[in-house]
Design a protein around this nucleic acid. Sequence first.
DNA 1: GATGAATGAGCTTTCATTCAT
DNA 2: GATGAATGAAAGCTCATTCAT
Lengths: 229, 229, 229, 229
Amino acid sequence: MTDNQTYGAMKDGPASATSPDPGAPKPSEIDSAKGRQILDGARKVFLADGFDGASMNDIARVAGVSKGTIYSYFASKEALFEALVREDRRVQAEQLGAYDDHQGPVAEVMRRMGFGLMKVMLDPAHVAQTRTVIAAAAKFPGIGRVFYEAGPQFGQDQFSAWLRRKVDEGQLTIDDFDGAAAQFLNLVQGVHFRQMLFCFSPRPSDAAIERTVDDAVAVFLTVYGRKSG
Amino acid sequence: MTDNQTYGAMKDGPASATSPDPGAPKPSEIDSAKGRQILDGARKVFLADGFDGASMNDIARVAGVSKGTIYSYFASKEALFEALVREDRRVQAEQLGAYDDHQGPVAEVMRRMGFGLMKVMLDPAHVAQTRTVIAAAAKFPGIGRVFYEAGPQFGQDQFSAWLRRKVDEGQLTIDDFDGAAAQFLNLVQGVHFRQMLFCFSPRPSDAAIERTVDDAVAVFLTVYGRKSG
Amino acid sequence: MTDNQTYGAMKDGPASATSPDPGAPKPSEIDSAKGRQILDGARKVFLADGFDGASMNDIARVAGVSKGTIYSYFASKEALFEALVREDRRVQAEQLGAYDDHQGPVAEVMRRMGFGLMKVMLDPAHVAQTRTVIAAAAKFPGIGRVFYEAGPQFGQDQFSAWLRRKVDEGQLTIDDFDGAAAQFLNLVQGVHFRQMLFCFSPRPSDAAIERTVDDAVAVFLTVYGRKSG
Amino acid sequence: MTDNQTYGAMKDGPASATSPDPGAPKPSEIDSAKGRQILDGARKVFLADGFDGASMNDIARVAGVSKGTIYSYFASKEALFEALVREDRRVQAEQLGAYDDHQGPVAEVMRRMGFGLMKVMLDPAHVAQTRTVIAAAAKFPGIGRVFYEAGPQFGQDQFSAWLRRKVDEGQLTIDDFDGAAAQFLNLVQGVHFRQMLFCFSPRPSDAAIERTVDDAVAVFLTVYGRKSG
DNA sequence: GATGAATGAGCTTTCATTCAT
DNA sequence: GATGAATGAAAGCTCATTCAT
């Protein structure tokens, strides 16, 4: 009677919070008010106190539900945090998608994408969650994986695909798409994200971000841009 | 971290280890052998297990003192951790020693430096320590600052100075030394450090590191290398 | 015990299943399909997991009803368990059917009976059930009585009657039939059942069982067998 | 820092309760007042409520210590119960030793040993502990093993050794000492212990016990007694 | 001054029971 | 009448902190 090991499965409670609501007019991502309530409460507490510092009691109180209810939606504290990370990465990806329509000259699009990425990455809530994920990853590597896959890895894959299109269009010259994507994304970050992660400096100004992004684009296009004869 | 190591003699009772005299004329910052013993044990345990993961029992055992003794030197677990960071900051500030005797062609030296940096950064112990510092930075921002200054910032400053020398020698063409240094250090890291930090992948092979470093050097020299007419 | 088995139709609402009418003229003791369904599910789970180990969730799932429905039929987990035992007592009382068509020489028949008994007793499911009953007997002595009467006592009575027939046939010489029956049944068990009950050893081989049974028969017939002049 | 898996080991607390007190005038079995206090409290609660029914909070309250103290003496609830079982088996063995000086005619000694065994086995506290052990054995086989080894197995070994001595003295004729010992011990128990275990009947009278023991001795000596020519 | 046994609040998690639908 | 989401009081266990020796 203890075989119910499905990750995120529930013993008692409502149908899976991750199972889609068939027949719903819109594909709502979090398919229950309670589930959303719990995730919102959990977000506040986890970001304020970190993974270890957050207690399920606090989360229940802030979310306005009982502890048992949380456990009927999420199998464990770890699973709850993981679901939260997954949701936030998805929302972030949507934000990034909204930033860029991918229209215009290559240099211009890269500047827009780079700036959009940094606006999202340097959001204090994102920095705080990154810190919490890194701390939790020591104990629960799965959480780190989820964050990495849905965050950095996803972004790199998206950008790598975009690079391939530009190469196909004859606007760039690249052999290793993934390598080049990683290089650009590293260049774009400059020192800003790292400095915030270590609480070395507050959020930089938009101007500072723009300067770093412009430099990154310049370097990238010097190397991979179409060589004019 | 399960050693039962017992340190040597113990005398020289506790003093105001928790109220450091920041402007003291004398260099005896750690005022007793016991205090040092405790701090050394605490460093090991905190870096291995994180702040929340470390228990005062473990620290006492590793330090070779009793729990009561720890509490006669430090008011609380938090105070002990803060004192530890304060000490590390001072030690690292004193550590600003000589550096750099890199000889040879620019490309070769950069490859050597890049590879050496990554070997250090990707050491599992360093990754674990970085995780702990990042986690602690949420609660104790000063810890993050200290680490950043003595680590990434210090490295960037050193490399920036080296770049300036190479420009003076006419081997590179750079306007913004700090910016270029940051770009190179970012390129060199590729995805490896981030992937280990998030427990997404184990330590990469030397070959994989070399490839990333070589690509970084190539990009860097394409942009900043002496343009041959 | 992890089946998600759903039973068929469900109607015929709850009645006074918790206040059984012991002297009811009609034989419909379990007064609804739902009630029976619940009891059948409960039997499986209680015997597999013990009283404390069984959860109402598991019982509801195995029975194919909701938890609320169980509580509309039975006032509490304890009441459900009691009702289960009450039902089993009645069923077993009705089970006093025909028996015994053991043909052949006395020694041979005794060996066959002894071996058959041990095969049943040493079945892991029977051992687990016995454990649950013994554990429950502390809280619900009636449960132990029912089990004892329908099990060991019933077996001893049957065997005692068989011994009487053999004495009447002149093949054995016994004064105290019940005492002799108990002696044989104790001898036959050897250490096997006790060792399994305490989880000291796994199920013994058939050869080991046979040896114990053969020895038991030998001892018994040495004492009670017809003395040849 | 979580490798301290030694069974019964303690993280915080006093030196092992099972380590002998060097220099003590008598080899006291439970070497600390606190340990004894805990065991005595645990005995009351476990026998009253069973293994699952007993809570560590209750045990702590009854024992007059804090929960943490219990865990500094015993690694877990299971380990505490196991220690309790071990101690009680040891005490029981001492009681049995006191019963018998093994002097006199074989039949007489066997009667005395058998009666003494049954007096101990049929003690209500022993029956209750046996029930609790059997219940716990489903979840924690180790507990069942400890009980079986220190109880039935130990008794059988002792008696088997005694039988061997009698055979050496020419007073009995036995091939399989262990088998014969098991047979006698089974015969001696008759139905009494089983009936109490299942709460089928209360403690039998001494006369009833004596009758069963006498019959057991008679059967045993008929089979294994010195054959007079 | 140093010790480590003792404390008890706190942790995550489970589950019998209730009640709005 | 039936459902199962929600509850919240425990459960076993840990650990920062205290204090008698």
